[in-house]
């Protein structure tokens, strides 16, 4: 995946069943962000794989003061890429059926 400077990782073991999963996001390379990033640490949150949109969560992080508005796309893309990977892994581990 493209290196956005923002890293998103699972914050719990994925059992492949839960719709809502714990994620952890932090900035690895602040230079990739457009705005001035105030280093607050890692942000832990839950994400509903079925019903939520990465960009909406990114906007909530902006609204909460973690990032500036100009970086909402980078944060959203970082979350979306990780979510896509989680979904892809789940599909691979599901039996193709009969």
């Amino acid at each position: 995946a493209e290196d956005t400077g923002v890293r998103v990782e699972l914050n719990e073991e994925d059992d492949g069943k839960k719709a809502s999963i714990a994620l952890k996001l932090w900035v690895e390379d602040a230079k990739k962000l457009k705005g001035k990033y105030k280093d607050t640490g890692a942000i832990e949150f839950t994400f509903d794989l079925l019903n939520e949109v990465a960009e909406v969560v990114a906007q909530e992080m902006v609204d909460s003061g973690f990032f500036l508005e100009c970086d909402v796309k980078i944060v959203g893309k970082s979350i979306r890429d990780r979510v896509a990977l989680i979904k892809w892994r789940r599909e691979r581990t599901v039996s193709p059926g009969n």
Partner: peptide, 27 residues
Amino acid sequence: SATAQVVHSAGRRFIVSPVPESRLKDY
């Protein structure tokens, strides 16, 4: 512990914690 909670108006809970060791990468 060094954690803090931020609750967004939409109800989502963000918990701020120390960055994992893996952040240490070569620049």
